[in-house]
């Protein structure tokens, strides 16, 4: 092989453990997660948004009216991950889902451990499965279980 034909390839990892300050709204939600609770926020039109947005998506007003919610909800939409990627939250087939907490109007995205695709459908009820250790992270919700 001639020198000029040599191809130099090497794996590398680009990364950093970022230190994020949360601000009051995101912090309130993550604090609630650490305490194994769900908190939403009321938008300008009174609709309850989970996770709480800092600003209303339509009026851009600052939001601050928090609402406590149960850790149960309903699947609005879902997608079945047959082959989870290395970084995905679950290492077996699972569903991403838009989940609307009971008492909320805007769904959030997380995953559902349903075992099989056939167990998934819009309208199904789910409940949070909390992580063994909760630290104040979106990953404190390990996933949702069919309920």
């Amino acid at each position: 092989m001639s020198a000029s034909a040599e191809v130099l390839s090497q794996a590398f990892t680009l990364g950093y453990t970022y230190t994020r300050s949360t601000g009051p709204v995101v912090g309130r939600f993550l604090t609630a997660l650490r305490d194994r609770k769900i908190v939403g926020i009321k938008g300008s039109d009174g609709k309850v948004i989970v996770p709480p947005m800092e600003w209303d998506p339509v009026t851009a007003e600052a939001l601050s009216d928090f609402v406590d919610l149960p850790d149960t909800g309903v699947v609005k939409s879902w997608a079945w991950v047959k082959h989870p990627r290395g970084k995905h939250p679950l290492d077996k087939p699972f569903a991403w889902a838009q989940i609307q907490f009971d008492g909320a109007d805007i769904p959030m995205i997380h995953c559902v451990d349903a075992g099989d695709e056939s167990a998934m459908k819009a309208g199904m009820r789910v409940k949070v499965r909390w992580a063994e250790e909760t630290i104040g992270s979106i990953n404190d919700i390990a996933c949702f279980d069919p309920a």
């Binding site: 994020r20 300050s21 949360t22 601000g23 009051p24 709204v25 995101v26 800092e54 600003w55």
Partner: peptide
């Protein structure tokens, strides 16, 4: 700025 999120700073 420990008191704000990234969006909070920009906002």
């Amino acid at each position: 700025r420990k008191d704000v999120s990234i969006a909070g700073l920009v906002r």
